[in-house]
């Protein structure tokens, strides 16, 4: 397993700040660095999503992939943000079983660690608020 520098650098606007590229014409939001809307060709603008929302659904992962060993068991949730956008992110500080509909807030955490000498990947995750 190797976390590439380009991977961290390319994703940081979304991983660190929940910034997405929004099409002013159709309103679609993209996590990826798309300069033009793939649907209607309009130039997109950077928008920051809210850091609060509610949990719609979640799952627990016991057999975690490489790089996630420190975090097992791992919880992943589908969250509806205050503005209606839906995102998938890691759930943290899970002290009791998550509940659908519970309020959550985003916090910056480690999500993946590349061995003893590779890179550390940080991202906004959700915890119960």
């Amino acid at each position: 397993m190797e976390i590439s520098p380009a991977h961290i650098w390319r994703n940081k606007h979304y991983r660190y700040r929940f910034e997405v590229n929004v099409c002013p014409k159709c309103g679609r939001a993209f996590r990826e660095n798309v300069e033009r809307c793939p649907k209607c060709g309009e130039r997109t603008t950077r928008v920051r999503l809210p850091l609060n929302g509610k949990l719609l659904s979640w799952t627990k992962i016991v057999q975690v992939p490489d790089g996630y060993e420190d975090f097992a068991p791992m919880y992943v949730g589908l969250v509806e943000l205050e503005d209606g956008n839906r995102v998938i992110a890691k759930l943290v500080d899970v002290l009791e079983e998550p509940k659908e509909g519970q309020e959550v807030e985003a916090v910056l955490r480690r999500i993946r660690v590349d061995g003893q000498s590779g890179l550390i990947e940080y991202a906004l995750c959700f915890r119960p608020s």
Binding site: D70, V92, D93
Partner: peptide, 13 residues
């Protein structure tokens, strides 16, 4: 801190 926390994540909050 929990396993996903370090001095950077705590500094952020």
């Amino acid at each position: 801190g929990g396993p996903d926390e370090d001095s950077v994540t705590m500094a952020w909050e």
